[in-house]
Design a protein around this nucleic acid. Structure first.
Lengths: 74, 74
DNA sequence: TTTTTGTGTATATTTTACTTTACATAATGT
DNA sequence: ACATTATGTAAAGTAAAATATACACAAAAA
């Protein structure tokens, strides 16, 4: 059931941080560029650890990078 | 490269929330009790999605459940 | 004593995150 | 024209998260 309810603004944050490239972010977070691409395009959501590392790479809080679009009350 | 840098206070939160059992939390978060045990005892850290769902189960923010013990500056 | 409830351990399996490698393309620079 | 840089796609493999099932044990309840 269901599409991922987690969305992110990695792309925005990259460009807000001096046009940081995917490769630079990957290096900072300690993953490959493929992983950044997959997460940025929401192909899947990262592990909690990686989410924390990505937030740290931007010097922001985790919830400034990833948001949980919880189910709307009907 | 190392041990998980993510810690949690699920056990504390369970008991702060009316002695919520592992099974009740598992049901709320939509996972099995085994998963709760594994995460609570830090055998591994959850997916980002599950982390969000667990926070929601306690009605707190993700970072009130999980904290990232980032590397200490030497 | 027997049953139920909550917690813990163990192992096998499925699913998903992540890696690695390779190739494609548009944009920039020489 | 050629090289470089940044992004994207795809496929095959490894690693880790999550499930399912089973068994064990202590505490409380009947």
């Amino acid at each position: 059931m269901g599409k991922s309810l987690v969305s992110n603004n990695i792309r925005l944050l990259r460009f807000q941080n001096g046009e940081m490239t995917q490769q630079q972010l990957a290096d900072k977070a300690g993953v490959t560029r493929q992983t950044i691409i997959a997460i940025e395009s929401a192909k899947y959501s990262p592990s909690l650890e990686l989410a924390f590392r990505l937030a740290k790479a931007f010097n922001v809080k985790l919830e400034d990078v990833f948001t949980y679009d919880s189910e709307e009350k009907k």
